[in-house]
Design a protein around this nucleic acid. Structure first.
Length: 429
DNA sequence: TCTGGGGTCCTAGGACCC
DNA sequence: TCTGGGGTCCTAGGACCC
């Protein structure tokens, strides 16, 4: 039987690399990309990591470092990142018939039988090096490749390929001898699926490295923790428990939420924000040809504020009849907001959540006594709106969404949409 | 003054049923 | 004093991921 071979291809400092593709002058400069609100650091170049700046650090805490080291900042340019991501994934498709796009910057590829026919490790390494070179050639994005018989080990191989430069950005952990050498060097919190809380408890049990965890009996871990971590132990030992999912399942919930640039106190302004969220969420819902059976809305003040009075509440409604009509969702959201809104608080964040999502085609039969809230021409109208908005973004919107939404996030360091907007195409002089 | 957003999965516990 | 047992469904909350 052929040993399975999974590759994890992960882009290096993805958002930063995207910015650098069009700004080669920044290649060896410290570069960071900021979160939606220009509030936190969400991507760092190696130079920034070397300064000891951690992921999700609030910008205001490191102003002095930004100034002293002249760190180049960028607001998140998701349009650009999404486009480059799809180009990376397109390049990868040539290398395996089974590909799972795991996130915006990484994919699992099933290479079983594709490059192990000589059973020499060199062969798989060559294949991975080829993948790496082609992605860079096609997109300008550097990647690292981890190879192993399970997803968890492939993640680990990728971690090591990134950390130890002499691997050349490619590492194969198919060989158990090699695993025995590497796993004792990897802190247990670097294992995929082991987070902060689990790490704390593992430390108390004297488990500090990936090797320590792999040596535990599955039953022990299952009894002290849960099935998820028990699977991780098996995966670390080369026994696959997690399948490659080449077909992305439909989303089970869709969330839209934002922190506001400034605190909102007026119900009208919250309605405006909520209406925007409802439009975005409903559009996503229709894009996967689904309807939602429940809607919930939540609002809160800033929990980190020492001076503001705190308030947080959410409300949910199960719909008699599932919908994907923006107008209907907006109506319900407004009604929910009315129920939970309290005057006199400074609201920092608001979110809208669609749940109980099901395929449109399986929309349940109405019961005998309910009156349809979704008119028969609804889907025609929504399709038309989506169609127009795809060509002319935000051309059609619900009026309550407002035009001057100054609660929206500041983008002080936004780069152009180099690849998706004619007027932003980089020129050559 | 300023601290991201969008997801998934699992578990415990309550309600309810027979 | 004793106060069934087993099953399902739903929800809230925790933990994790990128």
């Amino acid at each position: 039987m052929i040993q399975p071979l999974i590759a994890l291809v992960d882009c290096n400092n993805f958002y930063v690399s995207c910015e650098r593709v069009f700004r080669p002058d920044l290649l060896y400069q410290p570069v960071a990309v900021l979160s939606n609100n220009d509030g936190c650091i969400v991507a760092r170049s190696q130079e920034v990591k070397d300064l000891g700046i951690k992921m999700a650090t609030p910008v205001h805490q490191i102003k002095h470092l930004i100034k002293r080291h002249q760190i180049h900042l960028f607001s998140s340019n998701y349009t650009l990142y999404a486009d480059l991501s799809s180009r990376v994934m397109q390049s990868l498709e040539a290398y395996s018939p089974h590909l799972e796009v795991y996130s915006i910057d990484e994919s699992f590829l099933d290479l079983t039988g594709l490059c192990s026919h000589t059973s020499s490790r060199r062969n798989s390494i060559d294949y991975a090096l080829q993948i790496k070179a082609e992605v860079f050639q096609n997109t300008g994005i550097p990647v690292c490749v981890g190879l192993a018989p399970t997803k968890t080990l492939a993640k680990l191989a990728n971690y090591a390929a990134k950390k130890w430069h002499k691997t050349g950005g490619v590492l194969d952990l198919s060989d158990t001898l090699r695993r025995d050498k590497l796993l004792p060097l990897v802190p247990v919190n670097e294992v995929w699926g082991v987070g902060k809380q689990t790490t704390k408890r593992l430390h108390l049990m004297g488990i500090f490295t990936a090797h320590d965890l792999a040596s535990q009996s599955v039953a022990t871990i299952q009894s002290h923790f849960n099935i998820v971590l028990a699977r991780t132990v098996q995966e670390l030992n080369g026994i696959a428990c997690l399948d490659l999912e080449s077909i992305a399942p439909d989303k089970q919930q869709i969330v839209c939420s934002r922190s506001f640039k400034r605190r909102l106190t007026d119900e009208k302004e919250l309605i405006g924000a909520l209406t925007c969220f409802a439009q975005t969420a409903a559009e996503k819902l229709r894009h996967q040809e689904s309807v939602a059976g429940s809607i919930s809305v939540s609002i809160r003040t800033n929990p980190l504020s020492q001076t503001d009075a705190q308030y947080q509440r959410s409300g949910q409604i199960q719909l008699k009849q599932p919908t994907n009509d923006t107008r209907h969702i907006v109506r319900i959201a407004k009604r929910l907001l009315k129920e939970i809104f309290k005057l006199g608080y400074r609201y920092q964040k608001c979110s809208l959540q669609l749940g109980h999502i099901q395929p449109e085609t399986q929309r349940q039969q109405m019961d005998l006594f309910s009156v349809s809230e979704q008119s028969s021409d609804s889907s025609t109208l929504m399709n038309t709106v989506d169609h127009i908005n795809r060509r002319f973004p935000k051309a059609i919107a619900i009026s309550a969404a407002g035009i001057n939404n100054d609660w929206q996030t500041p983008v002080n360091y936004l780069s152009p949409r180099y690849t998706t907007d004619w007027d932003s195409l980089p020129g050559v002089t």
